[in-house]
Design a protein around this nucleic acid. Structure first.
Lengths: 244, 244
DNA sequence: TCGCCAAGGATTGTTCAACAAGGGTCAATG
DNA sequence: CATTGACCCTTGTTGAACAATCCTTGGCGA
């Protein structure tokens, strides 16, 4: 869903398929941050050998969706506050520059952004929050695409996937998505009209607010459950901590 | 050498070590672009199992140093002209922004840059071109570091590693390195003094020239050897095409 | 009761051997 | 000379095995 749109007849290796499935589950929140991915269990459930699973996990690790601790295996990444700030620092760098250059952007870029914004509005009206989240990410992805670098696009994609991890962690995505369609729209219109400095200003406030919201959600998710340290119980006796 | 300086007592898994060795060989040019990495041969030479090797290769693939073609295995990446342009587009985005923000940069960043520039000058005087190349990369790495994002640093590191692939491909690194110390120095002094717009201008010319040079080297490397298409003979009968 | 220590179990890291599938080579054939 | 087909090499994937490491748990002593 956050994957690049290479689409339909994609012949994928087993390892690639496994990586896709796990990525999906992680990004969608089916596997909350901190969840330990025990190799035998996951391999059995996905009906692949442990070796192929390990290859897939290594891919996910290099995308930052999963962390690998020596002799303790991999677990779904639990972003720290510092890491969230790091992500937003990166977003500011890339998105403000994109906003600045969008004045001379290709028309295709604007239609892509417009599509994403429209999709977001539809999703929000329908109260389909997960879809709304995806659309929002697509909007910003389209914005960064005006920089015209495939590598940046790819990098930004992994960045947003990590960020989405934080959303999915919080129980109600609604709180994260509600009301942002309007702000996406506002930002888009400014970009569209080529109001360079103004759009950058709005963008910075946008990102500031978004960052604060994610950080709040993080603090709350960490504080609310009495004995859930989201780290400690990754291994051990947590009711459904493995991926089966 | 281009790895992050976590340094000394680093306990690394076998997979990690294998990845490091191969990364080194690739970046240093011991394995020229297009070289096919046959699993059994490489695994035997490095004295690891095929499975472990495959995990390491997957890491390298996600760093872009190696390409994975289904059913045909992995081979050292051979950058196309379009990809080189893509890399420089990315560099422009990150480095110009870094130059702009360097006005308010931490002092530590400047000392890092100064160290790199000094190292580059020493290496160039000593005519140690490989070292000179490394130093130059460190300078730009230090520049981008002022953006203050760990993720950008990491991203930029893989970017430069890929670029270095193109240098190493050309037979004489001297042509790539000679004379650039002065330009690095010039750029650094401008940054140091906080001449914002001027340093950005110089930087853009710098990158423009560098890009042209790499592209020229690429064209030449592709044109010069009569029957070396750097792709065709990756597999097949090339004298020393595998990594043994 | 509390804390320390050893035994035991579980999980990862790594290896080995095997086989199917796909691709390339090369020679025979039309 | 182009095509076909057999052959071989290489990759993709599996299953089982073992050592090393970590966590848990129960026993022991204070």
């Amino acid at each position: 869903m956050l994957r690049d749109g290479s689409g339909s007849t994609e012949e994928l290796s087993t390892t690639g398929r496994v990586a896709d499935v796990l990525r999906e589950r992680i990004v969608e929140g089916a596997l909350p941050p901190g969840t330990a991915l025990r190799e035998v269990a996951v391999a059995a459930e996905l009906e692949v050998s442990r070796n192929t699973l390990r290859e897939a996990l290594r891919s996910l690790a290099s995308e930052g969706l999963v962390v690998q601790t020596p002799n303790r295996g991999v677990s779904v990444r639990a972003l720290t506050a510092a890491e969230v700030r790091d992500i937003y620092r990166t977003r500011r760098v890339l998105e403000t520059q994109a906003a600045t250059e969008s004045a001379v952007a290709d028309e295709a870029h604007f239609t892509a952004m417009a599509d994403a914004v429209a999709a977001k509005e539809r999703a929000e009206r329908a109260r389909r929050w997960t879809e709304a989240g995806t659309a929002s990410l697509h909007f910003h992805q389209a914005l960064v695409a005006v920089l015209g670098s495939h590598r940046i696009d790819e990098f930004f994609r992994t960045l947003l996937a990590q960020l989405r991890l934080a959303w999915a962690a919080s129980r109600d995505e609604e709180r994260f998505q509600r009301g942002w369609a309007a702000r996406d729209r506002e930002l888009f219109e400014l970009l569209r009209r080529g109001h360079r400095t103004q759009s950058v200003g709005v963008l910075l406030v946008y990102l500031e607010d978004s960052e604060r919201q994610v950080l709040d959600g993080l603090r709350q998710a960490r504080g609310a459950p009495p004995d859930d340290r989201s780290e400690r119980n990754a291994r051990g006796r947590s009711p459904r901590a493995d991926a089966t």
